[in-house]
Design a protein around this nucleic acid. Structure first.
Lengths: 193, 193
DNA sequence: CTACCATTGTACCAGATGGTACATGTACCA
DNA sequence: TGGTACATGTACCATCTGGTACAATGGTAG
C-alpha cells in the first residue's frame, strides 16, 4: 500500500497536535500511534525527517483553510473576514493551531528541520489579502499595510483565544477590528483627520 | 555571595534567548555559561526548576517593558502606543521576544513547568490598556475589546517582524492600526455607519 | 513453486540525558 | 585555631535517545 506512510503521517500529526512535539521522543510518538519507533525511522528516515514532514502537513492544513478564503460573489470584505475568522477559530482546529504556534516558536529559534516554515508563513497569507484590499479600492501601499495588520490581528487573537478560551472576548475584538477596517475603506465619508 | 544564583540565572536566560530552550540539555546550557551541569542542578534543583525560573525571568523582563507604558502627561494615546511599539520592537530585544514566543508555544502545548506563563500572559497586559482606553472616553465594553485588539496587533506584528525582519512593513501596519484606533475614539466626527 | 520486495519484529548499539554520591575547596565566624 | 556552611569538581548511575543489523513475515509476479 502506497499510502501506509501517508496514513502514519496523518496520525502522527494528530498525535503531536494533541500532545506537543517538542518533548516527545520517537518511541513516545510511535506508541501513541500503535506502532514502533522502528517503523517511523523506516518510513521517514530519521526523527528530523518525520519532523519535516509533520511541518509540511501543518503548512498544507493551513493552506487548506486559506483556500476557503475564496471571495463569494456579493459578499462584503467585512463579511468575508467574519466568515474566515469563524472558520479558523473553530475549537475543532485548536490542536492544529496550537501545534502551529509551537512549531512556529521553535522555528524562530532556529531548530533544525523547522525553519523552512518561516519562508512562507507570512507572505503566503499576505498576498491574497493584499489582492482583496486592492479590489476594495485601497492603494497598493494601504493594501499591504492593511493585510499585514489583518494577519497580525488574526494570529494575535488566536493566541489570546488559545490562552484564555474566552471566545466572546476574542470575537468582540475581531468585530471591532473589522468595523474599523470597513471604516477605512475608500468610498465612505473620510473617517480620518 | 547570595546572588551567584541570580547571575547564573540571568546568564542562562540570555543563553537560551540566543540559542533556544527547547533543544538544549543541561550540559549544553552549562557549557554555554562556562559552568557544569552539576552547578545548575545544585542551584535550581532540577532541569524543570531551571526552566521555571527562566520563565519567571522572561515574565519579569516583559513586565519591565510594560512598566514603561506609564502615561506621560500631555501625550496622546496614539503617541503613547507609538512610543511603546518603538520600544518593544527594538532589535536589541528580539532574542527575548523570540524566547517568549518559543516558551509561549510550549506552554500552549502543556509542557510541564511552563504553563503558569499562561495565567497572566494576556490579562496582565490587558488591564492597563483597558484603563487607558477608558481614560480616553471609551465605554468599558469598548475599552476591553480595544485592549484585546491592541495586544493581538502587537503580538501578531512582533511575530511578523521576527519572521520577516521587515521593519518598515511592520511599522506601517502598526501606524495604520493606531490611526484607526484614534479615529474610533469618541469626541470625533463619528466615523462609523 | 520460487524469487522478490516491501514491511515489520527483536535485539542491539553508542552516546547523551537528568540526577546523585562523595570528596574537596574556600570563605567567614567563633 | 577549628568548625561550619556554601560552593564546586569528579565520577558515577540508570535510563532513554536516535539509529542500525538482521531475521522473519507476507503478498505478488514470473
Amino acid at each position: 500500500m502506497v499510502d501506509a506512510k501517508e496514513r502514519l503521517l496523518a496520525a502522527a500529526v494528530d498525535y503531536v497536535a494533541e500532545h506537543g512535539i517538542g518533548t516527545k521522543s520517537l518511541r513516545q510518538i510511535a506508541a501513541g500511534l500503535g506502532t514502533s519507533h522502528r517503523m517511523l525511522i523506516y518510513h521517514f528516515g530519521s526523527k528530523q525527517g518525520l519532523l519535516v514532514e509533520i511541518i509540511r502537513t501543518v503548512e498544507a492544513r493551513q493552506r487548506a483553510v486559506l483556500a476557503d478564503l475564496a471571495h463569494e460573489p456579493g459578499e462584503s470584505a467585512g463579511d468575508m473576514a467574519r466568515r474566515f475568522w469563524r472558520r479558523i477559530s473553530d475549537p475543532a482546529l485548536w490542536p492544529n493551531v496550537r501545534l502551529f504556534f509551537e512549531v512556529y516558536g521553535q522555528a524562530l529559534q532556529g531548530r533544525p528541520g523547522t525553519t523552512h516554515l518561516l519562508d512562507d508563513v507570512v507572505h503566503a497569507w499576505l498576498d491574497p489579502i493584499i489582492a482583496l484590499g486592492m479590489a476594495q479600492g485601497l492603494s497598493e501601499q494601504d493594501a499591504q499595510a492593511a493585510a499585514r495588520l489583518g494577519l497580525a490581528v488574526t494570529r494575535g487573537l488566536l493566541l489570546d483565544l488559545l490562552t484564555t478560551g474566552d471566545r466572546a472576548a476574542a470575537d468582540a475584538a475581531m468585530e471591532r477590528y473589522i468595523t474599523g477596517y470597513e471604516a477605512q475603506l475608500p468610498g465612505r465619508a473620510s473617517p480620518l483627520s
